[in-house]
Simulated assay, not measured.
Amino acid sequence: MARTVLDAAPALPALFARAALTARGRGGELPDTRLARTGVAVDPAALADYAQVCRFPLGDALPLTFPHVLAFPLQVALMTDRAFPLALPGLVHVRNLIEADRPIGVGEQLDLEVWAERFAPHARGATVDLCASVSAGGAEVWRSRSTYLARGASAPEGAPASDVDVEVGALDRPAAQWRVPDDAGRRYAKVSGDVNPIHLSGLTAKAFGFKRAIAHGMWVKARALAALSGRLPDAVAVDVAFRKPLFLPSTVTLSTEQAGGGWDLAVRNVKSGTEHLIGTVRPA
């Protein structure tokens, strides 16, 4: 295993530009590479902007999804390296699992590490998991697994099939309704750094096969968890599947139901009933 510690967060606009230029000619196995940063401090202004876009209240602890924003530049750096077998442009986030052992204080110094694993066949191509670990005071306190789908790609022969679904109850009663504006992707891109073109405009999304821009899956997840602020366990696991793209603009409903000591979640289109996100929140 090769482990590289970076002094600063990689510049995401430059990485996405490089990803577009180096998309062709990829293939092979996943690299045995890890990228890390140590002693990372949270920028209060960046945290406030993120909280506003995702509707989290500001407090002494980080929103559960915010460490993903800290680790994401390292994951993009890993995916844009020529050794990574899949082209980053057009990758679709289809599942995300976050596990937290405790709330992370806003002022804590954090160590981040990311890697890729589980390159697997899927009915529509291939998936890969981008994993992240966050430690504080020498102990891991948060971890995540983001599964991305590359449509039309091929995984190595003999790899086990990917698992991208989550089981929840019926969730028939909406608890809230959101109007998701056409600039939601650009607003989240500004606070997260995720400037994948499928989220930014209809024109750039169409270049990758989408009829309109689509919302970031992690924004949908964050917005759903923000609606449960103050009602989540301190040690928690949140597993969600991004079922269908949430095209911008849209109006959606959030349905929640207590289950297993936590919650089941679903975000659906208000008119068609199309499921955009389903997930579970459970004590860890």
Rank of each mutant, 00 (worst) to 15 (best):
M1R: 12
A2Q: 15
A2I: 15
R3N: 08
R3F: 06
T4H: 15
L6E: 04
A8W: 09
P10E: 05
F16P: 06
F16C: 09
F16H: 09
A19H: 06
L21W: 11
R24Q: 11
G28C: 08
L30H: 13
P31C: 08
A36I: 09
R37T: 03
R37F: 09
A41I: 06
D43I: 13
P44R: 08
A45I: 12
A48V: 07
A48S: 08
D49C: 11
Y50A: 05
R55Q: 12
G59R: 08
A61P: 09
L64G: 02
F66S: 03
A71R: 01
F72S: 04
F72H: 05
P85M: 01
P89I: 02
V92P: 00
L97A: 10
L97N: 02
E99Q: 07
I104E: 00
G105V: 04
V106C: 08
V106G: 01
E108L: 03
Q109P: 06
V114F: 00
W115R: 12
W115C: 05
R124Q: 15
V128C: 13
D129R: 12
D129K: 14
L130V: 08
L130N: 01
A132W: 03
S133C: 11
A136M: 13
W142K: 05
S144M: 11
R145N: 13
T147S: 13
A150R: 13
S154Q: 14
A155M: 03
P156V: 03
E167F: 06
G169N: 12
A176D: 15
R179S: 14
V180N: 07
P181G: 06
A184Q: 13
G185P: 08
P197I: 05
P197R: 10
H199V: 06
G209T: 02
A213W: 03
A215Q: 05
M218K: 00
A224G: 02
S229G: 02
G230Q: 06
R231S: 12
D234G: 12
A237W: 09
V238H: 00
V238T: 03
D239S: 03
V240M: 02
F242K: 00
F242S: 01
R243T: 07
L246M: 11
P249H: 09
T251W: 06
S255Y: 06
A259P: 00
G261Q: 05
L265Y: 01
A266K: 04
A266E: 05
N269P: 07
V270A: 15
S272G: 08
S272L: 10
E275N: 15
L277N: 04
R282Y: 07
P283L: 09
